[in-house]
Each structure stands twice: as C-alpha cells, then as structure tokens.
Design a protein around this nucleic acid. Sequence first.
DNA 1: CGTCGATATTGACAGATCTCGATGTTTGGG
DNA 2: CCCAAACATCGAGATCTGTCAATATCGACG
Lengths: 119, 119
Amino acid sequence: MSKSLLELTPVQAVACCSPVTREPLSADAAERIAPLVKAIADPVRLRLLSLVASHADGEACVCDLNDAFELSQPTISHHLKLLHDAGLLDRDKRGVWVYYRVNATALGDLATLLGGVTA
Amino acid sequence: MSKSLLELTPVQAVACCSPVTREPLSADAAERIAPLVKAIADPVRLRLLSLVASHADGEACVCDLNDAFELSQPTISHHLKLLHDAGLLDRDKRGVWVYYRVNATALGDLATLLGGVTA
DNA sequence: CGTCGATATTGACAGATCTCGATGTTTGGG
DNA sequence: CCCAAACATCGAGATCTGTCAATATCGACG
C-alpha cells in the first residue's frame, strides 16, 4: 500500500468536529471532511454500503456484491477500496474470500456531523 | 430556468426513504440520493452550508459569502446554485441582495438517511 | 509445484467537475 | 434615462472520476 501508516483515514480526521450547522467550518476542516462525503457520493457506493450494512451477519462477501451489479469486477473492487480507504468499510480476508462490514461509528459520526440535530 | 417545474429536487425525492443501513437500497433510490450527497461532497460547499447555517438570523447574503473565500464571484455563485438546486439552501432576493438560508428539514433527512442510528 | 478461482492493481478513455474571465440581468440611485 | 453594484450565466481549460479490459497477486487444492 502506498499510504503512510501515520495518515488518518478521512473518518478519523472528522470524528472530532462539531456539526456543520453549529459554527463555520474552517477551510482546513472542510478539506478533511469532504473526502469522506465524496466516498458516499455515488449511487454504486451508496448501494454497496447499504448492501453490506443490511446483510445477514452484518458482513458481505465481495462475490455476493459483484453479483448485485451489472458492473465489472474491477469496478466493484475499485468502489470498495474507496469506501475502505475512507474508513466506512472494514475488510476481513478469510481464505480466498474477502468480507466487508460497515464501520457503524464512522457512519454515525458522519450523520451527526451533517445533522447537528441528532445530538 | 431549464428545469421542469414538475421535477423534484434531490432532497424531495429522498425524504421518503428509510436509512441506508436498514435494507438494501434499490438502484433507483441510489440514483436519486447520490446527487444530494454530491451536493455536499465539496469543501467549498461544506463551508458555504456551514457559514449560512451558523450565521446570525440563519441567513447570509451572497456578498458576505464571497468575502469568506479566495475564489471568484462566479465560482461561489455556481456552488450556491448547486446547493440550492439540491434543496439544501433556500434563496430569498431582497432588492439587489440575495440571501440564502439552510433548509433544516433537508439536512436532517439526509442525516437520518445516512445514520440509521439517529431515529 | 501447477493450476484455478477470488480479488486487487494497472492503464486508458469518456464524461463530469471546478475554476476562471467575460458578459448578461436586474435593481436602486442620480 | 443611464450608470453602478450585486448576482447569475456562459464558454473554456485543467483536473478528477467511473468504467472497462488486461494483468497481477494470493490462497486452496490436487
């Protein structure tokens, strides 16, 4: 992997912030938050997230996910990587198969950040 | 405006849906939700939203917003249009000035949709 | 070992997005 | 009227993104 181990995933960089509606976001904070939002700003990734989240046992095998779309395997792999890099999906390789599961904390933080209402 | 009056803004098309984590999102629903998320998937637009939301009286004049960025006036105008088209910002023209205010319901719906946790 | 099946990575291309300068539109004032 | 100021729209250029085919990697199993 080309990414430094010292780097934070977008979601880690965001967990600290108060809701967007409370006080003006600094340019710096906005630059850190945007990638996280971008990660879910795509119909395929929204469905992937949703599929994994609502799957039995809370996890889904890539093979299942591939079958749910009329897209090539590399394309699904690409989207999963983006979600994983953002910290929204955790990955678990067991044998030849790879299972993804939602990082609920990450999603929750993001929702709180946006909502402001949701305490 | 080139947009039909019968069309829904992204946020209107989304308000009906249950959280992403509850059940698999249909391809159709995902296509409707994604534009709304895209609308806030940019650092400038996140800051604009935040600036408007946290502004005194809950509204901000474009002139104030322009001054908060080192970007050209057309660029800010472009981003405000995207947020407005998504249904996240309401617009109110008074004389020569234009005031934007956050559509709290829209933001709340979006947060709920993502969080699932937040009831 | 050699092969096969499951994922990931790479390289390339089309289309979307962000930004700007130039220009248009609307409103209030002189 | 005509101008100036506030904001929007247009057109263009550079960069980013989604997708695929081809290929690499990695683990299981004869």
